[in-house]
């Protein structure tokens, strides 16, 4: 026989899932949220997204090519996801320079300094976001008010997010019922008519993306559901105890990036636990921390910090929370 046959260890068939396909599924899942933010914030949303994506891809390529001397892997789509997520987490009128800096921190510090995809302990987009939030607190918290599709990039009118309005008002001793009148109704919050970061506003679009991710089996439901349940339960109890000073659970779920964080940020493969049990612990931890930061902390919004803090616990969770082994507990006779 003149042609050679191939020999390899079993198995000999493979599922057609690849890292690239998973990443592009995530991108597809983020499209509805992107569309909503373009609808509400106009040109600004497009510019911010483009700048973030292009600079993330570019930094990844540059670092791999010249610093780490690796074969660049930007086609796997992970930098694309980081770019879009970073854009989702900033206001739509953020100056271009700041976005590029954020991308550099996200890719350079958040991802490549740990050895690239698969080795980063923290979600790169969140590292970038938190870095910007601490470095440019004013720029990062002057949220454009939804102005419709025709809003230009620089001329957006800014205002506070609903969460900030409530938090500040309560701090000043205002009545919650008065404050709730100032913020958009729950229905408006649901489809995203509020001030805030680009991707976090439209809960409906994010839920659509969540459904797509579940359908494509990219993620399991455990992390998002455990986060949302915990937040709903925690804020629900506080609301029942004193509805005068605590906003209702639905308000908490629909504002301030809870949805975005739960569906797209906390479920990042690299920085979330490996086991179902671990995922529950992770999700509950994020939920509790988010509410603690929101209610007792200095920031009106806590999802990013909560996820980053829980990211740090993931190696610990992985080390101690093991799947139940087959035959471990002998239940037969």
């Amino acid at each position: 026989m003149n042609r050679l046959i191939t020999v390899s260890p079993s198995p000999h068939v493979y599922e057609d899932t690849t890292v690239k396909r998973l990443m592009f599924d995530v991108v597809i899942a983020m499209l509805p949220a992107l569309a909503m933010s373009i609808y509400f914030f106009g040109m600004g949303a497009i510019i911010v997204t483009l700048v973030a994506v292009v600079s993330c891809l570019m930094f990844e390529w540059l670092i791999q090519k010249f610093l780490l001397k690796q074969e660049p892997t930007i086609t796997d789509g992970s930098a694309l996801v980081t770019g879009i997520l970073l854009a989702f987490n900033v206001p739509s009128n953020l100056p271009i320079g700041i976005i590029i800096l954020g991308s550099l921190v996200a890719i350079g510090v958040g991802k490549m300094s740990f050895g690239g995809l698969g080795n980063n302990p923290f979600n790169p987009a969140l590292v970038g976001r938190v870095f910007l939030l601490i470095s440019f607190p004013v720029k990062m918290t002057s949220w454009p008010v939804p102005g419709g599709f025709n809003t230009g990039y620089a001329d957006a009118v800014t205002g506070a997010t609903p969460l900030a309005i409530v938090k500040e008002g309560l701090g000043k001793g205002d009545q919650l019922s008065d404050l709730m009148a100032q913020v958009p109704s729950h229905m408006e919050l649901f489809y995203g008519h509020m001030g805030g970061s680009m991707g976090e506003i439209a809960a409906v679009a994010i839920l659509l993306g969540f459904a797509y991710l579940l359908f494509r089996k990219v993620i399991t439901w455990h992390i998002p559901v455990s986060i949302l349940l915990t937040i709903a339960l925690f804020t629900g109890i506080m609301w029942m105890v004193n509805p005068q000073t605590n906003a209702d659970p639905l308000f908490h779920l629909l504002t301030g990036g809870v949805m975005l964080g739960a569906v797209f940020m906390a479920t990042d493969y690299v920085t979330s636990p490996m086991t179902i049990k671990g995922m529950w612990i992770f999700g509950i931890g994020i939920g509790v921390l988010t509410v603690l930061i929101r209610v007792f902390g200095a920031y009106p919004e806590g999802v990013s910090f909560a996820i980053l803090i829980m990211n740090a616990f993931v190696p610990l969770i992985n080390a101690y929370v093991k799947p139940k082994r087959f035959g471990e507990a002998n239940n037969g006779k």
């Binding site: 050679l4 191939t6 020999v7 260890p9």
Partner: peptide
């Protein structure tokens, strides 16, 4: 001369555990 092609993990030890070589 090669008699077959190996397409597994590229380490000698795994190949040698699998079969007599290419």
């Amino acid at each position: 001369p090669r008699t077959n092609e190996y397409d597994g993990a590229t380490t000698c030890i795994i190949s040698s555990n699998l079969y007599s070589g290419d």
